[in-house]
Amino acid sequence: MKKKILVVDDEAHIIKIVKARLEANNYEVLTAYDGLSGIDKAVKFKPDLILLDLMMPVMDGYEACRRLKADPDTKGIPVLVFSATSQPNVIEKATQAGAADFIEKPFDGDVLIYEIDMIVNRRKGGEKEDTGNR
């Protein structure tokens, strides 16, 4: 069965290209446009990984990540933060909020997939995932 990735970003174009990259690599993709609806979808669909933007309306990524990690239902889902921010302590803050790792925008598509594969497979006890086009 395909692994599910929830992509949370307020920018529709970013969602569009990330979704394409993930689908080309054999992932199933769910999407949300702000932190709050991201949490809703995480609770409802239990994705294998959440790719989370930081600067979003309604609820930002830090807060969303903290809430996901505080909820027993979602705390086990790894969160990979990706952001265009240049705040100096962003990685530290993201890690403190419970993120597994951080990727800076703009990113290299292959690197993104590599990171996601690593995290998803690590979680599933290191089993090798078919990553299609990589």
């Binding site: 920018e11 174009h13 970013i14 569009k16 290209i17 990330v18 394409a20 990259r21 080309a24 600067m55 265009a84 921010t85 240049s86 800076e104 925008k105 703009p106 990113f107 290299d108 598509g109 086009n133």
Partner: peptide, 24 residues
Amino acid sequence: VTHEIRAPLTVIKEGISLICDGVI
């Protein structure tokens, strides 16, 4: 300004590599 440059660059860079690198 950095954010406002990086966000569109993400789409441009990834969009082009999706098309050019034969992912699609």
